[in-house]
């Protein structure tokens, strides 16, 4: 479990993170959403213990990130958005070196490396310098290193960024797997559709502040769905008739009922009663992106 309490971080006069608090529970995937420069990565770096907050406290499995840094690092895996390694190091050697920080002997580390490199699709690239790795390979290598101690908590920072569909699927499945194993996952992404499908909770950060925390159910409820229908003939009579279900507008040959508050079966029946042919009907929920911008808009 990751607990962030009233954390603030300044860079000179600039307040990058301002009194941020939220929790990532075990068995939970929390989406961390914000515009560029909102403070996501700064918050993540502080959770990872590589940046020291000015105020507040961060705990990972009840260990303080400052006073118990080593314990925190053992219990936390971190895959950064752009993993940067010491460029002249070879993947295999660097893995064994980093495993040394976990107190793992050279032989055990080599055995572990062989297994993880196989599992994560890095087999055959062990002897290559990390500088030659693609972005996806670097993320997989970061993951391999993070798995050394099999931590109970993970941070994926913009992990889908720069990956091909296969890579995105890999990390999405992995996050789900970790959740099922009871791990706490903090997942920041600007590809919000990816979060929609796997996150249990969304934390919105804007200009260094947490502006909203919502469960996915709350997100879905936050903006009502729209009903989109296509009929053979649009008439004023039809539009008037449908107005009782919501705000009706015509767009590109479709009739869209925003804030739809009826049910689709009733609408279908009524269209038939008007002797109109119904070609297409679908309900669309608001996307997370729309929710996000609505939340930001609410803050203004």
């Amino acid at each position: 479990m990751i607990v962030i309490e009233n954390v603030t971080k300044h860079f000179g006069d600039f307040i990058a993170v301002n009194d941020v608090s939220f929790t990532v529970n075990n068995g939970e995937i929390v989406g961390f959403v914000g515009l560029n420069g909102a403070g996501k990565t700064t918050t993540i770096r502080m959770i990872a213990g590589v940046l020291i907050q000015d105020n507040g406290r961060i705990k990972v499995d009840d260990h303080d990130t400052i006073s118990e840094k080593k314990e925190v690092s053992k219990n936390l895996g971190w895959v950064p958005e752009l993993p940067i390694f010491e460029q002249d190091a070879k993947a295999w050697d660097y893995f064994v070196y980093l495993a040394g920080f976990y107190g793992i002997s050279s032989n055990d580390a080599k055995r572990m490396a062989r297994q993880l490199f196989d599992e994560l699709g890095l087999a055959g690239f062990e002897k290559r310098k990390l500088a030659t790795y693609s972005q996806g390979m670097k993320k997989r290598f970061s993951l391999a290193v993070s798995l050394i101690s099999n931590p109970g908590n993970f941070i994926f920072d913009e992990v889908f960024n720069g990956l091909d569909p296969q890579g995105i699927q890999f990390f999405r499945d992995l996050a789900s797997k970790f959740r099922n194993e009871g791990k706490a996952i903090l997942l920041s992404s600007h590809i919000l559709s990816e979060l929609e499908s796997i996150a249990d909770k969304i934390v919105f950060i804007h200009k260094g502040r947490i502006i909203k925390q919502m469960s996915m159910d709350e997100v879905r409820r936050y903006v009502s769905p729209s009903l989109k229908i296509k009929v053979d003939r649009v008439s004023v009579e039809l539009i008037d008739y449908l107005s009782k279900y919501g705000k009706v507008r015509e767009e590109g040959g479709y009739i869209i009922i925003d804030n739809f508050n009826g049910n689709t079966a009733d609408v279908s029946k009524e269209i038939s009663a008007l002797n109109l042919n119904l070609y297409e009907m679908s309900v669309s929920s608001s996307s997370l992106e729309e929710v996000f911008f609505k939340v930001i808009g609410d803050q203004k």
């Binding site: 770096r45 990872a48 213990g49 590589v50 840094k69 080593k70 314990e71 690092s73 053992k74 936390l76 971190w78 950064p80 752009l82 993993p83 940067i84 390694f85 010491e86 460029q87 980093l98 920080f101 976990y102 107190g103 970061s142 290193v145 101690s149």
Partner: peptide
């Protein structure tokens, strides 16, 4: 170089 490039961060995320 590790400080300037950011590689030091990755290192610091280990139990050290």
């Amino acid at each position: 170089k590790p400080l300037g490039s950011g590689a030091m961060e990755f290192l610091l995320a280990r139990p050290i």
